[in-house]
Amino acid sequence: MKAVSANSIKKIFNVEKSTVTALQGLSFDVEQGELFGVIGPDGAGKTTLFRILTTLMLAQEGSAQVDGFDVVKDFKEIRKRIGYMPGRFSLYQDLTVEENLSFFATLFNTSISANYDLVKDIYEHIEPFKYRRAGALSGGMKQKLALCCALIHRPTVLFLDEPTTGVDAVSRQEFWELLKNLQKQGITILVSTPYMDEASLCNRVALLQEGKLLDIDSPEGIIKKFKKPLWAIRSTKMFRLLQDLKKMDNVESCFPFGQEHHVTFKEVLNISSLEKELTALGHRDLKMNQIQATIEDSFMELMK
């Protein structure tokens, strides 16, 4: 049995007379115990997909099963066994850390002590603040509390909607380590994120754009599919360099990427002639290296 299986899910929103297709027939499966990433830019349909799978929203077409139960017919069963952490912090800000946790434990007919071993690693981080109101916690702490609340009933499938958005780099790293530990306990985790660098931490990722699946594969698999040689180029005038590169006939694609531009070429590259050409255009301190593609490069390639 698959932990999650979606069959051509379609969701259309009516926005003031016009219609927006948020999901255009998505199909995918998530294996049991997998750490599955849904990667895509804002507005790709990640949250809509999660809301459908967590039985908060109905799809117009298609069907989906979570833990073997249908999201429409057996939504009651699903609600008993999944954990959901929405993108926005949505615990009670005026209740303390401990009150929030015991409140959600009771709603699931369990108690903190019954499942303490599962949340122990995470709860230890926030335990010093357990009498503090949730609203007064820092962003990273809030995320940890939300994760605790989503886990307190020992769910079989955990849905995390952009858990690391707006969280500092250190907390993000910590958060992913916590997820890896949870995965070891046999919990299937679906996590959505707009950060491409987090994709490599998942077992498999689904690249989502404008409601369409671009690819589903392991991070390595996706990178392997990127066959063309990739070059990182930098100079002193980065913006002009981008414009100049895009004008060249031989350049197939060129994206700004941190401090460099990632460029692919249509034909085999003659480095020295390119360097000459760019120097003639007034670029100094040119650095060109052939590099390994990342998931983001693949995503850019797929998006074309």
């Binding site: 967590t54 009651k76 008993k80 999944i82 959901y84 929405p86 615990l91 959600f104 709603l107």
Partner: peptide
């Protein structure tokens, strides 16, 4: 408005 109802709705209450 603050989204807590969402969190309540996914529980079996």
């Amino acid at each position: 408005e603050i989204g807590t109802i969402e969190q309540i709705n996914v529980t079996p209450i």
